[in-house]
Design a protein around this nucleic acid. Structure first.
Lengths: 199, 199
DNA sequence: CATCTAATTAGATGTTTGTTAAATTAGATA
DNA sequence: TATCTAATTTAACAAACATCTAATTAGATG
């Protein structure tokens, strides 16, 4: 999750009235008026807070006749609670520590150095997933972003680095570095590339 | 954790600059100036945010010559992240749902009704831990708070309810409802009593 | 003591936020 | 259509907040 979202989540819970709303909703859905009464506050105030909670994805609502019933989105509350910690400590869902940028750069450099010859050609395709991803990422990053490539172009591009263009081309697709649509290849946006730092 | 604390925690994390400070500190301690520079912000601003993070218990500091080094209080970040969820869903550390007060009262009443006779005497000592705790709690709550009792006094008190005063007296101590110091017995403060609602 | 450095305080400013009363809207019901 | 109900929007206002500049403090060092 990105910084903005985490901030929004914490802003949503940074007010006693809103937390009290969530506590009330933990027992089941409630109408706006009901909430206003239990909280000792105007319906307008409930609307105001409801908007913030909804924007942060913490609440759902359901309409029945004139009345709107609010209810919790439990999963989002759970995820948000963990998001800050994950952001700060770079932890993955499982709890392992993710490499920070500095460490990741060191690892990347060492792998590239090992798998590429002095003339820039790929010595072999790594068997270990992490190393393979580093190599593929490096190759794909040399393709132009947003440009469409024909199959022949791709093959030639890869052959600059390694004979087995078929395998590498297939890996590009499988690992989601690229996508293909009727014989046309294109780089995926960087944020779709797999994250080997987590492995 | 109480509402105020949870709100304070979320307020502390409800600002991008502060989260970025925590992210920077996750790699190790840093001076105020260092932080100001990395964040692109005045030292005064860092002081301002540092105060909020410190008040929420998320940061520690250490002085070395003229420089103050800030560092994370990881445990507090971890606990805070879970506090909201626990408050809202009344969950315990382990994740089981805790009974709310209303439900707890119903359970208590039904157990007491079953184990006490019409004349107020205890029919039998419950074998099941939860029920036993409810009964002991009820008995102890009849003792005066802060008053010191001799062993004889305690025995007599218990005998008003049940013949086996030795067992019950021992349970009072084992379950931490009371403490004993050279033959003198005294009620523990209520917040030390075991919480059967969690069981 | 004078000077240097890092941090804090004070004051100012513009922004965001929580709340309300009053006006308005959306939908149901008669 | 007129009326009722629940929710939302609007406008207003005080409080809280993030940030800056400038002044001040606390310690270290010459």
């Amino acid at each position: 999750m990105q910084l903005d979202k985490v901030v929004q989540y914490h802003k949503a819970l940074a007010d006693p009235t809103r937390i009290r709303i969530l506590i009330l909703l933990a027992d089941g859905e409630r109408s706006g008026q009901d909430l206003a009464e239990k909280l000792g506050v105007t319906p307008a105030t409930v609307t105001h807070h409801a908007a913030k909670l909804r924007e942060a994805g913490l609440m759902n609502e359901r309409r029945d006749k004139n009345t709107i019933f609010f209810s919790l989105n439990r999963d989002f509350i759970h995820d948000g609670a963990r998001a800050a910690e994950q952001l700060i400590f770079r932890k993955t869902e499982g709890g392992e520590n993710r490499l920070n940028e500095e460490e990741a750069n060191r690892v990347r450099e060492s792998v590239l150095k090992n798998f590429f010859a002095a003339d820039g050609r790929l010595k072999s395709i790594p068997a270990q997933l992490k190393k393979k991803l580093i190599v593929l990422e490096y190759l794909v990053s040399k393709l132009e972003n947003g440009r469409k490539y024909g199959e022949k172009e791709i093959n030639e591009f890869i052959r600059n680095f390694h004979e087995d263009f078929a395998t590498i081309r297939r890996e590009f697709i499988m690992q989601q570095f690229m996508f293909r649509e009727n014989e046309i290849y294109e780089r995926n946006p960087v944020d779709m590339w797999p994250r080997w730092e987590k492995l």
